[in-house]
């Protein structure tokens, strides 16, 4: 069953089209990514789904509920971490969790969350005194305290150092392992590649592709080498090869599947000597450039 169903979402601000027919659906237990550069409509999309904004057109169903008409019932069952929100400076960690737990009909025990998210020793610390990573962990804990079926995490790791980002990724995997569907908004390729089961790529208010990160990247690879002699090489007929380009002695071969093995075998058979052989996997970034015709 689809946990989130979005169809034909449109939103215009002061004549500027921010969302231009966004559609996607998120299955139960998925980590679903919304990926795109800043200012491409990711946050507007997710804020419409959360019920914070009203779209000009389109339909949204979250757990079968309309975020505008059934807002209260929907909000009972979702957890949200917003970009750039803070808590009151003097609010202590336990007070924040206790307070947010009181908003929901069937909250989780916040003491459990405190331990689970490594905040037990920060229990009595005021929000202003927490480190960036601790604040993020508190925000995730607050998003989970209502016992939600879906959580929305918007640019969760922006501003964190690499170690803290990796740690946060592990935490997000744990959230899903606990049976919660996760919608992740991100402009980090590595984050999406690491975490998401499926990704919607947004560009200029449109969804240009929805697939798994591997599916988006495809199995296209690139192979480069330098010819040691002046031999002519004919690689076009080798299985899997999709393109060959040569500049002087430098050769770049692109292909699919196991083309690299076929190419090396071909070279060996024809006694062609090469050096500096490298095989590169295409990245999500390459895929994005190919999809949108512009660099990320």
């Amino acid at each position: 069953m689809a946990v989130i169903e979005v169809t034909g979402l449109r939103k215009t601000y002061a004549g500027l089209t921010v969302l231009d027919g966004v559609s996607f659906s998120v299955g139960e237990g998925e980590i679903f990514g919304l990926l795109g550069p800043n200012g491409t409509g990711k946050t507007t999309t997710v804020e419409c789904v959360e019920g914070l904004r009203r779209p000009d057109a389109g339909t949204i169903r979250v757990l079968g509920l309309d975020p505008v008409k059934d807002g209260r019932r929907m909000r009972e069952q979702i957890g949200v971490q917003l970009q750039q929100t803070q808590l009151p400076e003097n609010l202590k960690v336990w007070e924040a969790l206790d307070l947010y737990a009181s908003f929901y009909a069937r909250p989780r025990d916040w003491r459990e969350l405190l331990a689970e998210w490594g905040l037990a020793d920060k229990r009595d610390t005021r929000f202003a005194k927490l480190s960036g990573g601790q604040k993020q962990r508190l925000f995730i804990a607050l998003a989970l305290v209502g016992g939600p079926r879906v959580v929305f995490l918007d640019e969760l790791t922006t501003g964190l150092d690499p170690a803290a980002r990796r740690a946060t990724w592990e935490l997000i995997k744990r959230v899903r392992a606990g049976g919660v569907t996760v919608v992740l908004v991100s402009h980090f390729m590595d984050e999406v590649e690491e975490l998401c089961d499926r990704v919607a790529v947004l560009d200029r208010g449109r969804v240009v592709a929805i697939d798994s990160p591997d599916g988006l990247v495809g199995d296209a690879h690139q192979m480069r080498f330098t010819l040691l002699g002046d031999d002519e090489v004919e690689l076009d007929g080798v299985p899997g090869v999709t393109g060959v380009s040569r500049t002087g002695n430098r050769v770049v071969v692109t292909g699919r599947g196991d083309f690299a093995t076929a190419v090396t075998a071909h070279l060996a058979r024809h006694h062609v000597l090469v050096s500096e052989l490298r095989i590169d996997k295409r990245t999500l970034e390459d895929a994005f450039t190919a999809l949108t015709g512009r660099s990320f």
Binding site: E50, G51, L52, R72, R75, E76, I78, V80, L82, Q84, T85, Q86, L87, P88, Y100, F103, Y104, A105, G146
Partner: peptide, 17 residues
């Protein structure tokens, strides 16, 4: 104004309260 600036009101909009 500080509550609005810090996004406290917005965050609250996503809860049943």
């Amino acid at each position: 104004a500080a509550y609005r600036e810090r996004g406290v009101l917005r965050r609250l909009s996503t809860t049943p309260v």
